[in-house]
């Protein structure tokens, strides 16, 4: 009985999360007459790829996808490199007057205000740097936004690694950076993978700054591109759904490929190894 209840709860959860995804996927394969048929055609409709062709051949969604990929990957890598080094320093070095702790809080505090607050100043800065309508502007902003998150996640993971290990490595003849790369990073790899997934998701889904900063087909990312199909002449449900389905794929593929690490990374620190 208890088991039955549990399965029921799982079923409800799955239904609520997957139903919209299912609806979106079916819309992307339905002809427009089927999309608005009443009663709704849940299963029986004649599938078509016309919206995919429309989105990626006739329109510039291929371009948006490429921009999204470049921006997400570059900002994730940037945030991981900078954030990991910062987190390692904060985890290992004590500064006078508890300055290291204050520094950590200060880094976190940059995430405490709503993003919209910085939208206008950042737009002005990017305009002055002639970076409006470039992917670089988004890469810089997403890197900055992901940094505090990376620093705080990685600091926790680094704190779990016994100091002895890197001290042993340094006495053994390695430099501190060498010890970080050869000894410490391999040990926090699961944490690194989990952090990377989060960064990637944030960058991939980010809408506000992409909307403010990119209006040309060359620089626009998928979320902005998709939203742009809501026009005063009508809403292109089919094209939007097709693009959304494609937008899901890379993040899903990456998450699945690091799933092994993800579970370990998220529970790292909870259990002493």
């Amino acid at each position: 009985m208890k088991r039955l209840l549990r399965y029921f709860a799982v079923a409800i959860a799955l239904l609520t999360t997957l139903a919209p995804v299912y609806w979106m996927m079916t819309i992307s394969f339905k002809r427009e007459v089927d999309q608005f048929a009443l009663p709704p055609r849940w299963f029986s409709f004649s599938p078509t790829l016309e919206h995919y062709v429309d989105a990626f051949v006739a329109r510039s969604f291929g371009q948006y996808l490429l921009s999204s990929l470049i921006v997400a990957v570059c900002s994730t890598v940037g945030a991981l490199v900078l954030g990991t080094l910062a987190a390692y320093s904060l985890a290992r070095f004590r500064l006078p007057r508890n300055f290291d702790r204050k520094l950590g809080l200060w880094i976190l505090s940059t995430r405490m205000f709503p993003a919209i607050v910085t939208a206008v100043p950042l737009f002005l800065i990017m305009r002055d740097l002639s970076l409006v309508n470039t992917r670089l502007s988004l890469i810089i902003i997403y890197t900055a936004f992901n940094l505090p998150f990376v620093v705080w996640m990685m600091r926790g993971f680094f704190a779990e690694v016994p100091r002895d290990l890197e001290e042993a490595a340094m006495v053994d003849g390695d430099s501190r950076l060498g010890a970080l790369g050869r000894i410490v990073l391999p040990l926090v790899a699961p944490g690194l993978a989990a952090t990377a997934v989060f960064c990637l998701i944030v960058s991939w889904n980010e809408f506000l700054f992409a909307l403010v900063l990119t209006q040309t087909d060359d620089a626009m990312t998928l979320p902005v591109g998709i939203a742009g199909r809501v026009t005063q002449y009508g809403i292109k449900w089919g094209v939007m759904s097709a693009a959304a389905v494609v937008a899901m794929v890379p993040i899903l593929a990456f998450a699945l490929s690091v799933q092994r690490y993800l579970v370990r990374g998220l529970s790292l620190g909870a259990v002493k190894g």
Partner: peptide
């Protein structure tokens, strides 16, 4: 060369 109380072997 140093030998640590915890041995400090590289686990990976």
């Amino acid at each position: 060369a140093m030998v640590f109380q915890s041995y400090a072997l590289y686990p990976h």
